[in-house]
Design a protein around this nucleic acid. Sequence first.
RNA 1: CCAGGUGUGGCGGAAUGGCAGACGCACAGGACUUAAAAUCCUGAGAGGGCAACUUCGUGUGGGUUCAAGUCCCACCACCUGGACCA
Length: 810
Amino acid sequence: MNYTEIEKKWNKIWEDTKLYAFKPDEKRKKFYLLEMFSYPSGANLHLGHWWNFGLSDSFGRFKRLQGYNVFQPMGFDAFGLPAENYAIKTGIHPEDSTRHNIAVMERQLKEMGATFNWEYELITCNPDYYKWTQWLFIQLFKKGLAYQKEAPVNYCPSCNTIIANEQVVDGVCERCGSEVVRKNMKQWFFKITAYADELLSGLDKIDWPEKTKILQRNWIGKSIGAEVDFKVEGSDEKLTVFTSRADTLFGVTFLVIAPEHKLVSKLVKDEYKDSVAKYVADSSKKDEITRTSTTSPKTGAFTGTYVINPLTNERVPLFVADYVISTYATGIVMGVAAHDSRDYDFAIKYSLPIKQVLTNKDGSDTALPFCEYGKLVNSCEFDGMTSEEAKTKIVEKLEKLGAGRFKTNYKLRDWSVARQRYWGCPIPIIHCEHCGAVPVPEKDLPVKLPHITDYKPDGSGPLGKCKEYMQTTCPKCGRPALREPDTLDTFVDSSFYQLRFPESLHNDKEIFNREYVNKMLPVDCYVGGIEHATMHLLYSRFITKFLRDIGCLDFDEPFQRLFHQGMVLGPDGKKMSKRNTSKTADEYVREYGSDALRLHMMFSLKYIDGGIWNDEGLKHIKAFMERVERIVLKWHKEKGNSSKYGDEEKELDFVLNRTIKEVASNFETFSFNSAVARIMELVNAMYKYDILKEKNGELMQKVVKSLLIILSPCAPHFTEELWEQIGEEYSIFNQRYPSYDESKIVLDSVEIAVQVNSKIITRMNIGTSLSNEEILNIVKADEKIKSLLSGKTIVKEIVVPKRIVNIIVK
RNA sequence: CCAGGUGUGGCGGAAUGGCAGACGCACAGGACUUAAAAUCCUGAGAGGGCAACUUCGUGUGGGUUCAAGUCCCACCACCUGGACCA
C-alpha cells in the first residue's frame, strides 16, 4: 500500500463527500470537542501541532464512532503582538502577514485529513467577529464591570506597552525578555474580582485536572480574616490593617505601611521626612530593577508616628517597609514579631519588642517565631482559647467597639485589558469632554480597525496618531470627541470564542442565540496546554458567568471536561524548535505517511505527560500497519463460511471482546498508548489463530471488521482504504464502534496465585463461578498448601476472586 | 522559600490496594532463504543454581495493611508554576 497516495485519495473523497460536515439538526447527542485556539504563527506545522491536533482529532473520530454528533470547529486567535512586532521588523502589515499565515496553516491542517468543521471557522481579527468582542466590552461597561482607573502597571519599555501580571516572567516581558518597569497609568480593567468567589466555588462542579484547579485556587487566593482599625496618636486618622490572624492581636508590637501607600507622606513626622523619603525612593527603584524575593533581608524606616491598638490601647510605632505591598488588602499590616516570621525578621533588625501571645496547644513553650495555631496567653479575657476560637471572639469584640470587622480578601486582581498597540480589537469607547467615557452605540458596531501604516509603538497607542480614526462626535451630546486609542488584550477575543463558534456563520444579529448556545454548550471536552491555567481558562469562566448574569445563556461553566496534553520535546529535552528538530512533520509524512506518524505519537508517549520525541519507532509502527494489512487481506482472500466455535475460537473471541472494551475506556482517558497496545494484542491473537485452517468464517469477519473500526481513529486513511479493499461500504467513519459481550470476557477458569502468610506458594487454575468457600476447599487440598498448613492454626483467609488467595497461619 | 507534579528493566511505557514490568523497541535463538533483508515463531527484570527452584527488586528511609509501584509520614533528585498576599 502506498500511504502517501491513499492519504491524498481519501482526503479528497472525504472533502468531496463532506463526510465530516456538522449537521446541527440531527437527533444524535452532540459532542463539542475543542482544541485551544491557535495563533497563526506562519511557521510550518510542526510535530507539536500534530501532537495537539492529530491526537485530539483521533479522539473526535472515536466519539463519532460512538454515535455522537461531534462538533469540532477550528479557528484562529489572529490579533496579537507577534504579528505587530514582525511588521515593525519587516514592514509587512500585520493584516497581510496574518492572512498569509492563516492560509498556510489552513492548508496544512486540512492535509492532516482531520475532521475539523472548517465551515464554522472563526478568525478574531475579522470585523464580523470583533464586533462581538466590542459588544461584550460595552455590556461589561454598562454593568460597571469595565472601568478605568489610575493604576501601577507592568510596562515593557521594549514592546512599549502595558502587559498583564501573568505575562511578566521573572520580572521580564514574556515576549521580548526586557525588564518590566512599574508605571502609573489610566487603564481599562475588567472587574473579574466581582466573580472571585464564584470562580472558586465553580471549580467543584467541573471535571478538570486537580492540578489545574489548584493553580486557579491559589491564583484567586481567598483569605478569610478581619480588618482592624488602629488610631493614629494625636490625630483623627485611623489606619486599617487586614489580618488573617486576629488571634495574635495582643502580640502587635509595631505597624507597617507599604512605601507606595497614599497616606505615607501625611503620616511621617517632620524629623523623619528625609529618611522616609529616601527609603521610599530607594524601594521604588528597587522595584524597577529586581523583584523583591522572600529571601532578601527586610528593610524599613520609622515614620515617627505611633498608633493605638484598639484592644490593648498600647502605643506601637509605625514603620514604612517594602515587604508590605500596597496593592493587596489595605497595604498596611500589623507586626506580630512572635508569631510571623517576616515580622520577626523585621523586629530583630530594628530591635523592636517581641511579645508572645500563643503557646502550643498543650500549653508548652514554643519556639520563636511560632506561626501555627495554638493557645492564647497574655491576651486578657481571651487567654486559654484556641486560635480558631479567638479569631472569631476577638473580631466580635472589635465589632462591638467599632474598631474592626470580618473581611475576606483575594489575591486575584482585576484584569487589565488595554494595550497600547495597533493589532488588536479597538476599544469601543468615545471620550467626550462633557460626557466622559461614552460607549459607542451598539448599532454603530463594529468600530473598525483602520488600515494604518505607522504602527510603531510609542507608548500612547499607534491609533492615537490616526486622525481619521480618533476624531468623531460624542454619541450623547454630539460635540466633537476622541476615540479611545487603546486596543484590547487578545485574551478578551478568546474569552468567548467557544460560545460564538456554533453560530459563527449564521448569526449577525446577536453574539449567539440563547436557546442554541444552551444546547451546544458547554464544551464537552477541551484540550490544551496547562500554561493557560490562570489566564485564558480563568477569563473564559469569568466571561461565561457574566454573560449568564445578563441573560445571554443559562449555564455556569464553559468547559465541562478539560485535558492538558504534555509537550513533545526535542532531543535536548527542550521545547521543539527549528534548532533541535532534525526533520519536519512534513518530511515524516512524506516518508512514512500521516497515519504512521499519528499512530507512532499515540503509542510511544503518554499524551498527558508528553516527552522527548523519538522517531525510531516510526518504522516499526509502519511494520505494524503492514502486519495488519497482511492479515486483513489474507482473510479477505481466503474468506470462508465456517461456523466452528471451539476453544481456539473462544479464545479469539475473548481477546476481541476485551479489546473492544478496553480500547474504548483507554480513549476516554486519553490513554492512547494503551489503546494501541490493546489493538496490537488483538492483531497478535489473529495471527495466533491462523485463519488458513478452514476456520475462516463468521467470527473472523467480525474480528476483522471490529479491528478496522477500532483502529480507524488512530489510522484513518489506512483503515478507510482497507475497508474499501475488503468490499465494505463507504465510509468506515459512518460505522458504529463495536459493542462487546461481557460474558465472552468472563473465562471459565483463571489462574490465581495462592499465598500462605502473604508469600506466593503456587498458582492454580480455579473456576470463575466457584464461591469463595469452594475456592478455599480446592486450595487447601493442594499438596504443597496442605503440608504448610499442617499443625498450624489458620488465623485468617482472604479470597479475592480471580486474583489471589491468602491464608494466614500461626 | 512556598505550592503542585514526576521518579518502575538497556529504552518508550502498563498495572480499580491483590501474581510488578502489559504492549512495543533494542537483544538472543529458531523457521524460511544459497545468503541477507523482510516475514513468522520462541525466549528474556537482576543475581545464584545443571535443574526443580531460590534471593533481591517500582528514587531513599520509615509506617498502615493479610497484601503497597499504588495509601500515610519524612527525605533526595528532577520538572512546572508562584514569589514577602499579612
